[in-house]
């Protein structure tokens, strides 16, 4: 199902970007947080990719649906708080129309997140995901991240649905 990420030097954010490029992702739609900030700049510099910076995560979700409707493979990069605030669009647009969307989500409010005010969002994240029927997985920091990205993208496409991969700071912060 997966192939190794070429030229991986163990830098997980680099592996995420190279995997997206290899899989033909032509666009990323994002609302940044402190972990996502630098990788978004790198994506912006990629000649084969378009970065769209949205003002709100539900808006970002709809932009991503439009990009995919137009035939371009697209990833959504947001914080977990952003997924909490896109619930209506998730169920009535992305899931209802069965858009395959790869969602790369910074998982704030976990035990290894030093910022205390993210804790309430961390506590609510997975119960809310389950409640709205959003397919998801947590990344495994002990395994290479590239194949995990590819598996999540495959689940989105072959399940015809959004699929969220919850990422740790080591995964996504450049």
């Amino acid at each position: 199902m997966t192939t190794p990420t070429p030229n991986s030097d163990g830098h997980r954010p680099s592996d995420i970007l190279s995997t997206l490029k290899r899989l033909g992702f032509g666009a990323v739609v994002a609302v940044p947080d402190s972990w996502l900030g630098e990788i978004l700049i790198r994506i912006e510099q990629e000649p084969t990719m378009t970065l769209i910076r949205a003002t709100h995560e539900e808006e970002a979700l709809a932009i991503a649906c439009g990009v995919r409707l137009g035939g371009v493979r697209v990833a959504l990069m947001v914080q977990n708080a952003g997924v909490l605030s896109m619930g209506a669009g998730m169920v009535s647009l992305a899931q209802r129309y069965q858009f395959p969307l790869l969602m790369l989500v910074s998982y704030r409010g976990t035990l290894d997140d030093p910022v205390f005010y993210h804790l309430p969002k961390g506590r609510a994240t997975e119960p809310v995901f389950r409640g709205i029927g959003l397919n998801y997985a947590r990344s495994d920091r002990h395994r290479p991240i590239g194949p995990q990205i590819e598996n999540a993208a495959t689940c989105a496409e072959e399940g015809s649905c959004p699929f969220a991969l919850l990422l740790s700071r080591e995964d996504i912060q450049w």
């Binding site: 666009a27 769209i52 539900e58 709809a62 649906c65 439009g66 137009g70 209506a88 009535s92």
Partner: peptide
């Protein structure tokens, strides 16, 4: 034509994404 069934308020962002892709 792409018809929205519901998802009020999301027509413009979806159209933006479509315009970028096409």
């Amino acid at each position: 034509n792409f018809y929205f069934e519901d998802a009020m308020g999301l027509t413009l962002p979806l159209a933006l994404g479509l315009a970028v892709a096409q």
